[in-house]
Computed example of a mutant assay.
Amino acid sequence: MKISLALTTALTFMTMNNTFAQDNSDRIPAKGFAVFEEKGHFQPYTFSRHAVGDNDIQIKILYAGICHSDLHHVFADWGAEEYPMVPGHEIAGRVIAVGKNVTKFKLGDSAGIGCMIGSCRHCDACEHDLEQYCEKGAIMTYHGIDYFNGNEHTQGGYSDTYVVAEDFAIKVPENADITKVAPLLCAGITSYSPIMQAGVKQGDKVGIAGFGGLGHMGVQYAVSLRAEVTVFDITEDKREDAIRLGAARYVNVNNSDELKELDRHFDFILSTIPARYIPVMYLKMLKLDGQLGIVGLPAFHNMPSLSVSDLVLPGARRKVFGSQIGGIKETQEMLDYSVKHNIYPEVEVIKANGEEIDKAYRNVLDGKVKFRYVIDMGTIK
């Protein structure tokens, strides 16, 4: 029996529509807070996440940290952005659904998500547990394209739920302080990883440049390794906090007297500074074969620089390296280490509403937070 072209087309269209409807029905509703334009204000936003696949888990988000890089994305400091945008890559919560192949998590487990939710898994970087440097490109928790799920745009943790492959979720120890876990998944690993790369050990002289969300974590990790830590910042109001967290010295770089006799002093300096500064100043403070690790990434219009002459002349026999977060294996290692040694960010918990998030952003810009805001997503309405 012959079927007309028109009927065949109609049947195909109906099949496609039914499949699309079924796929849509499997999607998971989500609600959160988004900005709808550059420098916009946060507003309630409803959207959906892809269905829980065989290797996925669904997390009920309990807490979401506010990272300075969230501000850079919201304000398009690093280039063009797409809106609406739900930021947030510091996520802690509970597992409420698991795919049939999942073995790492069970219902009710505590789990976290950091800056990335996927990678190709097959390139050289991925095979060496450095998924953040994936040759195809790591899939970011927000402001990303999920090429495993229809190239959908990822939305972040300022929301009530997230679906993620179990291999990219972090197991949170049950004895962890869940209110403080979320910032560890960015601020924690971003400072922990370069300290480990540099091989910091007992007795080393370590500088932490910038004493904000990243810097106050770097201080705690270096102190836990029994290094002698010096903190550099531009204000006086952080001096007592630095000493309280274990720093041996605090240097206000706007006071030239405090900078005297520091050349060739340090084994390692970690720069977390999110604004324009003079990197060669810190390069000169390194011993021969000392290392300068850079994790702070200011807005493009405010970017510091190092010249070749800086590296060859005052910087000779010093090493400079950049570092981006850490792979999943190292992030799990960091979290376990942090909980074991009681290393947490100092946080201020705020309610989940647009006005509160806007206010937090203003305070971060003005340097009025010590040291991390965390949104209680359980208060979302």
Rank of each mutant, 00 (worst) to 15 (best):
L5V: 12
A6V: 14
T15R: 10
F20M: 12
D23T: 02
N24Q: 14
R27W: 10
P29V: 05
P29I: 04
K31S: 10
G32A: 08
A34D: 01
A34R: 07
V35G: 01
F36K: 15
G40Y: 02
H41M: 06
Q43R: 15
P44H: 10
T46H: 13
T46V: 11
S48L: 00
R49A: 04
R49H: 08
K60R: 12
Y63M: 07
A64V: 02
I66H: 05
C67N: 05
L71T: 07
L71V: 12
H72M: 10
D77T: 01
D77L: 00
A80V: 13
A80C: 09
V86P: 02
H89D: 01
E90G: 06
A92T: 01
V98E: 01
F105L: 11
L107M: 13
S110E: 03
G112W: 06
G118F: 00
G118S: 06
R121V: 00
E127V: 14
I139N: 04
M140F: 11
H143K: 15
D146C: 11
G156P: 02
V164M: 13
E166S: 07
K171C: 10
E174I: 07
N175H: 13
N175C: 09
I178P: 02
L185E: 01
L185I: 03
I189S: 09
M196V: 08
A198R: 07
A198I: 03
G199W: 01
D204V: 04
K205R: 14
G207M: 07
G207K: 05
G212E: 03
G215P: 00
M217D: 00
Y221P: 01
S224Y: 09
L225V: 00
A227Y: 03
V231D: 01
F232V: 04
D233E: 14
I234P: 01
E236W: 00
L245K: 12
L245Y: 09
L245A: 08
A247M: 05
N252Q: 09
N254E: 04
N255W: 02
L259A: 14
L259Y: 11
F266L: 12
D267Y: 05
F268R: 10
L270E: 06
L270Y: 08
I273S: 04
A275D: 11
M281Q: 14
Y282Q: 08
M285G: 05
M285Q: 08
L286S: 02
D289G: 12
L292P: 00
G293P: 00
L297T: 07
F300A: 14
S307I: 09
V312N: 09
G315M: 05
A316T: 07
R318A: 03
K319I: 12
S323Q: 07
E330P: 03
D336L: 10
S338H: 08
V339K: 13
I343S: 06
P345V: 01
K351Q: 12
N353K: 11
E355I: 10
Y361N: 03
N363A: 12
V364I: 15
G367W: 05
K370Y: 02
G378T: 11
K381E: 07
